[in-house]
Design a protein around this nucleic acid. Structure first.
Lengths: 245, 245
DNA sequence: GACGGTCTGTGTACAGCGTATCAGCCGTGG
DNA sequence: CCACGGCTGATACGCTGTACACAGACCGTC
C-alpha cells in the first residue's frame, strides 16, 4: 500500500466517501465499467498474486480498458482498496440470531477468519474507513449481545476483544504465508526447510532456550485451526467469566 | 510496503538472514554506516511521517550518503524493514520473572502495546520473518508460563492468544490514527467532524440500528486505554478459566 | 615504504508505479 | 444540420526500488 499518505491535502473535511458518492445520482446506465466489476477484478488479482500485484495499470489490463479508466469511479488507489475490502466483507454471511451470544460470537469469529484467510491481503488494509459491509459485522455482534444487560461500552468491548483476537491471529497465520511468497518459496516443503534453517541459526545463539524447547516438544505446531479455536475458546470463556454473562 | 513480493526469485532456499550475515566476519571497524545507524534513521522517519515516507532515497538523504549506500548492508527494502522492526523490538523491556504468570503476561501485553503505539507502522510490517529481538518476546512469555504444567503446544497457544489480541487491538487503534493522516486531517477536532459526517451518512441508511444506538449511548468511546485493558482482562481471565491455571 | 586486494560508498540508468492533464470522440439539444 | 459538453484514451511527470559499473580507502604482505 504505497499510496497511503500521498493524497494528504487532496481532500479535506468536505470529503465524500465512495459509498455516499456512488449512491447519489445514478448518472447513466453504465455498461462496461461498474464499481462492482472493478472491485471484483482487483480482488481476483490480489487473491491470486497479492496486494502488490494490484496496480492501476494491471487492473486496467484485466478489465480491458485504458489505464486511467477506473479513476472515473474512485478518486485514487486508496478508494480502490476500500472498494475491495467492502467487496470481500460482502461475501461473509453473518450468523443470524441464535439466542445464545456465545454461539453467535463463535460462529462470527470463524466466519471472519475464513474470509480473511481466503483474502489474506485484507489484513494489510485495515487502515481504511469503515465500509458499509464492514460495519455490518459489529452490527450483527451487537445484536447478538443485546438483552444481556451490558451497557453500550461494554458490549462494544466484547465485540472488539473477539475481533481483535481474530484479526491478530489471522494476521500471524497470514504472515507466514506471505513470507513464503516474499522468499520465493513455492512448495511447502521448501518453505519449511528454508524457514527452519534460518530459525536454526537464531536458536543456535542460545538466547532462546524456552523457544528451543517448544520447537522440540510441540506436536501441533502446524495445526493452525486447533490453535485458533483453542485461543478463541479462551477469549469467549474470559468474556463470559469476566462479565458474568 | 510495495516491495513485498518483488524479489521473489532473487534468493531461494540458500537464503541467509540479515542477522546471520551481520554476525559472521566482523570485517572492519565500520565508521559512517552501520546497520544500527541505518535502522535508527529509518525508524525515525517512519515514526515521524509514516512507513511510506521511508524510501531508500529519503533514507540516504537522512544519513548523508548516496542513494544506494544502504544496499551494502541490506539486500533490499524488505530487509531494511526487518532491521527496523528488530530495532523497535529491541527497545521493549520485557518483564522479568514475577512468579505469577498472569502478572507477567499482563505487563507484557501493556509493554507490547506501548511499543506498537509508539511506532504505529510496525503493525503493518508483521509479514517479515522473526527477528532476534522479536523472538525474545515469546521467549519471555514461555519462561513465565513454565512450571504450570502446560504442554508446549498449550503454552504457545496462551502466548499466541495474548499477542493476537494485543496486535489486533493495537491495529484497530492505529487504523484510526492512520486514517487521519491519509485524509489530511491534522487536528483531532477536524478529524472527528470529518469521520463523524461520513459515519452519519452510513448510519442514515438505517442498516445499522444497533451501531447507531451504541454511538448514542456509549460514554467511553474514546477511552482506548480502558477498552484495551478491559479486553485484556477478559482474555487473561479466559486463559485462567479455560486451562485451569 | 610500496603494492594488490578487499571493502565501502558513488553515479548513472532502467522499468514500473500513481496519477494530472489534455486531446479527441460521442451522443444530444438547437 | 451543426455546436456543444461530458466521457474516454493517451501522453507525460515525478517518484519509486534497485542493477550495475566505478572510485577511493584501508588492509596485510613483501
Amino acid at each position: 500500500m504505497p499510496s497511503q499518505e500521498r493524497q494528504a491535502q487532496a481532500h479535506d473535511k468536505d470529503h465524500v466517501s465512495v459509498w455516499e458518492r456512488l449512491e447519489r445520482p445514478a448518472p447513466a446506465p453504465r455498461t462496461t465499467l461498474t464499481p462492482r466489476r472493478i472491485a471484483k477484478a482487483a480482488v481476483a488479482v490480489a487473491d491470486a498474486e497479492g496486494l502488490d500485484a494490484v496496480t492501476m495499470r494491471r487492473l486496467a489490463t484485466e478489465l480491458g480498458v485504458a489505464p486511467m479508466a477506473a479513476y472515473r469511479y474512485v478518486t485514487g488507489k486508496d478508494e480502490l482498496i476500500e472498494l475491495m475490502v467492502d467487496f470481500v466483507y460482502a461475501e461473509m454471511d453473518l450468523p443470524g440470531e441464535t439466542g445464545n451470544w456465545r454461539t453467535t460470537m463463535h460462529t462470527l469469529a470463524l466466519r471472519i477468519r475464513e474470509v480473511l484467510l481466503r483474502h489474506s491481503w485484507v489484513t494489510r488494509a485495515t487502515w481504511c474507513a469503515p465500509t458499509p459491509n464492514q460495519l455490518a459485522v459489529p452490527e450483527a455482534a451487537l445484536a447478538a449481545l443485546d438483552g444481556l444487560g451490558l451497557d453500550a461500552d461494554t458490549a462494544m468491548v466484547v465485540y472488539s476483544t473477539v475481533t481483535s483476537y481474530v484479526h491478530g491471529a489471522v494476521n500471524a497465520e497470514v504472515g507466514v504465508t506471505q513470507l513464503l511468497r516474499v522468499r520465493g518459496w513455492s512448495s511447502r516443503e521448501e518453505a519449511r526447510s528454508g524457514l527452519a534453517s534460518q530459525m536454526a541459526w537464531l536458536l543456535s545463539t542460545g538466547r532462546f532456550p524456552m523457544y528451543e524447547r517448544y520447537i522440540g516438544e510441540a506436536g501441533r505446531k502446524d495445526d493452525l485451526q486447533w490453535q485458533f479455536e483453542t485461543g478463541l475458546e479462551c477469549v469467549l470463556d474470559g468474556i463470559s467469566e469476566h462479565l458474568k454473562i
